[in-house]
Amino acid sequence: MPGFILHVGATVMCPHGGQVQISPGNPRVKVGGQPVATVADMYMVSGCPTPVPPPVPGPCLRVQWLVPAVRVRAGGQPVILQSSTGLTFTVQQVPAGPPNVVMTQVRVKGT
């Protein structure tokens, strides 16, 4: 499914409202002057407000993208699109739901 390509400056949030920081592995390919996000990059969540009592698995820690772009690659790795499917994982590695892409650049699309 086509969508705008994510970059380091994109706003991505966990299902509970925590901010996702993208650490690019390949800073050479850029859109809007910022490195594109690929499936090989690190996506760490900070500020997840999920409480940590014993029955709850804990706050979100990271994002793993399951369905990246099919046709567009950067440095040999598929890029992440606004329409890509992913999951957030808690500190105990329990799936916590899909991440929400709130804002990204709106000039370059991929499929």
Results as ranks from 00 to 15, higher is better:
Gly3Asn: 02
Phe4Lys: 11
Phe4Asp: 01
Leu6Pro: 06
His7Lys: 07
Val8Tyr: 09
Val8Arg: 03
Ala10Lys: 03
Ala10Glu: 02
Ala10Thr: 03
Val12Trp: 02
Met13Ala: 08
Cys14Tyr: 00
His16Gly: 06
His16Met: 10
Gly17Ile: 09
Gly17Ala: 13
Gly18Trp: 03
Gln19Cys: 09
Ile22His: 12
Ser23Ile: 15
Pro24His: 10
Pro24Leu: 09
Gly25Pro: 05
Gly25Tyr: 03
Asn26Met: 12
Asn26Arg: 05
Asn26Thr: 08
Arg28Lys: 07
Arg28Tyr: 01
Val29Trp: 02
Lys30Val: 15
Val31Ile: 14
Gly33Ile: 08
Pro35Asp: 09
Val36Cys: 04
Ala37Pro: 11
Ala37Cys: 02
Thr38Phe: 11
Thr38Tyr: 05
Val39Ile: 15
Ala40Ile: 05
Ala40Phe: 05
Asp41Pro: 11
Met44Pro: 07
Val45Thr: 01
Ser46Trp: 11
Ser46Asn: 13
Gly47Met: 08
Cys48Met: 14
Thr50Glu: 06
Thr50Ala: 15
Val52Trp: 00
Val52Ile: 07
Pro55Glu: 02
Pro55Lys: 01
Gly58Cys: 11
Cys60Trp: 00
Cys60Gln: 00
Val63Phe: 09
Val63Ala: 13
Val63Cys: 04
Gln64Arg: 14
Gln64Asp: 15
Trp65Ala: 03
Leu66Ile: 14
Val67Thr: 14
Pro68Ile: 10
Ala69Phe: 05
Arg71Thr: 14
Arg73Met: 13
Gly76Ala: 11
Gln77Pro: 06
Pro78Cys: 06
Pro78Ile: 08
Pro78Arg: 02
Ile80Arg: 11
Ile80Ser: 04
Leu81His: 00
Leu81Asp: 01
Leu81Tyr: 01
Gln82Ile: 00
Ser83Phe: 04
Leu87Phe: 08
Leu87Lys: 07
Thr88Cys: 15
Thr88Ile: 01
Phe89Lys: 06
Thr90Tyr: 01
Gln92Pro: 04
Gln93Arg: 14
Ala96His: 11
Gly97Asn: 09
Gly97Tyr: 08
Pro98Cys: 12
Pro98Val: 11
Pro98Phe: 06
Pro99Glu: 04
Pro99Asn: 01
Val101Cys: 04
Val101His: 01
Val102His: 00
Val106Cys: 10
Arg107Leu: 15
Thr111Val: 07
Thr111Cys: 07
